[in-house]
């Protein structure tokens, strides 16, 4: 845990932080509004005491209630990975600003997040599906996209009836009955 990174982040990004800086193991996590992504990434990238210049990953997350865009950054100034969670995208119309103005490589990562979650990155010049065929209409990594052959969650399936931790998927009456939801954190 890099305590000094925490104070540097609080000093630089005070107004943008939507939750206290969270640190565990070798990771530092901040939570911001999706609208603040360009300003925050620009500050993290350009500040002389932060210098987060390598975009390690960009991922979409569906928590079952909201969508998130999660960035992982690396900097030579800190021995922690930095995780930026742009939280609270609506599941019906998830929109977030693109990071391609800073990292061109985010273009394909955002295409992947669009393909899998339907998150629309405003400012990405080439936001089309990257893995699934062009006539595909679903977003497979969303939590309400249930696998048809998911034996572990089918009502009669699985070998650990007693220990099963989440409800079996029942699409018949309530399509959202079997959706797993992320814990509140």
């Amino acid at each position: 845990m890099d305590r000094s990174l925490r104070s540097r982040l609080e000093a630089r990004l005070g107004d943008y932080l939507r939750a206290p800086v969270y640190q565990r193991n070798d990771e530092t996590e901040i939570r911001i509004d999706p609208g603040a992504v360009p300003e925050v990434l620009r500050l993290l990238h350009d500040s002389v005491d932060l210098r987060f210049e390598i975009l390690a990953d960009l991922a979409g997350v569906d928590t079952g209630e909201v969508m998130q865009v999660v960035y992982h950054l690396w900097s030579p100034m800190s021995f922690d990975w930095l995780r930026i969670v742009a939280d609270g995208l609506s599941r019906d119309d998830p929109r977030a600003p693109s990071a391609t103005f800073l990292w061109i490589g985010a273009e394909w990562l955002e295409r992947e997040a669009y393909d899998m979650f339907g998150i629309i990155f405003e400012g990405n010049r080439d936001l089309r599906r990257i893995f699934m065929p062009p006539d595909y209409t679903s977003f497979p990594l969303r939590k309400d996209f249930l696998l048809p052959d998911d034996a572990a969650r089918s009502p009669g399936g699985g070998v650990r009836h007693v220990e099963r931790t989440h409800a079996p998927a029942t699409l018949a009456d309530d399509p959202k009955a079997g959706i797993r939801r992320a814990p509140v954190s």
Binding site: D57, A59, H72, E163, R180, P183
Partner: peptide, 12 residues
């Protein structure tokens, strides 16, 4: 999410 399956598993 506390269950026996990862809630999200992102591969970079």
């Amino acid at each position: 999410d506390g269950s026996d399956q990862p809630f999200r598993f992102r591969i970079h």
